[in-house]
């Protein structure tokens, strides 16, 4: 896929999103209400309309080949770069999905381990050291210091003794 092709695909996707936003805004009043001023939908409606207009402007520039991107025949992303970016995106998605299942801390452990060992090709002891340290430091900072309770999924009961140790038995 060339940059030029990606440019028009993105403009079309964003134009479609703009139309969706206009339609969604129109669920509220987009006109003038006596003694109340503009209706609740007017502001997002007209902004979305300007978004649509901008997409038309981008498409017009694309058609006339008047910007460097609209002329570029280079690939949108190289195959090596695509592989690593996709790996990272998939890994991030899986990890976030795991937050609610096996808990944030186990998910972070897996994330660091896989990222360092597979994507970063570090040696296993290095990867393990970071994979253990990261969730521990995260726990101490978030749960103990600033009292933000992160999702723990099925691992919830394992944390009761730790909270008791820090004198937070009630949680």
């Amino acid at each position: 896929m060339s940059v030029r092709f990606a440019e028009i695909v993105m403009a079309c996707v964003m134009a479609a999103f703009s139309v969706y936003l206009m339609w969604k805004s129109a669920e509220l009043n987009i006109g003038w209400i006596e003694d109340e001023g503009p209706g609740g939908g007017a502001w997002p409606f007209w902004l979305s309309a300007v978004m649509l207009l901008s997409c038309a402007g981008i498409a017009w520039n694309w058609w006339r080949r008047s910007t460097p991107l609209a002329r570029s025949t280079e690939p949108f992303i190289g195959s090596a770069a695509l592989r690593i970016v996709l790996q990272v995106v998939v890994l991030l998605t899986v990890v976030v999905a795991l937050f609610d299942v096996i808990g944030t801390y186990c998910a972070l452990f897996l994330f660091m381990l896989v990222y360092l060992a597979v994507i970063g090709s570090h040696r296993l002891p290095v990867a393990l050291a970071w994979a253990v340290t990261t969730p521990v430091v995260t726990f101490l900072f978030f749960e103990i210091l600033i009292k933000v309770i992160l999702p723990k999924g099925v691992t919830e009961p394992l944390f009761y003794p730790i909270f008791r140790f820090f004198g937070m038995g009630g949680i």
Binding site: L21, E27, L28, W43, L47, S54, G57, N61, T67
Partner: peptide, 29 residues
């Protein structure tokens, strides 16, 4: 690119409008 700048401003403002209408309190977007 001017069109892209305008697009960026407007999408930011629309995202800020998600949630509830500040005047009527109705759910919005």
């Amino acid at each position: 690119d001017i069109w892209k700048t305008i697009f960026s401003i407007c999408i930011g403002l629309v995202l800020a409008a998600v949630g509830t209408d500040i005047v009527s309190g109705e759910p919005r977007l």
